[in-house]
């Protein structure tokens, strides 16, 4: 389905500093994207330690949080994204 859609998947990963959980999430996300969503995604990593107002703006409570902003509907995943299959299911993107 994602293949049909012309718009790329826009993902925002919110982290707070370089904590083990944050680093694990970044690592896991990179792996998922390169293995399953090659060329069809845009990833932005936001460090809330530097920009706490964004947490308020986007309603972020837990760290790390991955937000799929596009395509709608918005989905949120919290945690270090250690289960690739679950992440893909929740992002509603398949290979």
């Amino acid at each position: 389905m994602a293949e049909d859609s012309k718009e790329p998947v826009k993902l925002v990963l919110y982290v707070a500093g370089e904590t083990p959980k944050s680093l694990a999430a970044i690592r896991n996300l990179e792996k998922i994207c390169s293995e399953h969503l090659a060329g069809k995604y845009k990833v932005e990593v936001v460090d809330l330690k530097k920009q706490p107002q964004l947490a308020r703006e986007h309603g972020i409570v837990a760290i790390p949080t991955l937000v799929k902003e596009l395509p709608v509907p918005i989905r949120k995943i919290i945690g270090d994204l250690s289960d690739t299959q679950k992440v893909l299911v929740h992002l509603s993107v398949e290979e």
Binding site: Y14, A16, T19, K21, A24, A25, N28, L48, K49, P52, Q53, A55, R56, I60, V61, A62, I63, P64, T65, P73, I74, R75, K76, I77, I78, G79, D80, L81, S82, D83, K86, V87, H90
Partner: peptide, 20 residues
């Protein structure tokens, strides 16, 4: 609209409170 996958904490909540 939230799924939990893996380990997490509520650091963002703290950051928000601290900011406020």
């Amino acid at each position: 609209e939230v799924a939990e996958i893996g380990d997490y904490d509520l650091e963002a909540l703290f950051l928000r409170l601290e900011f406020a």
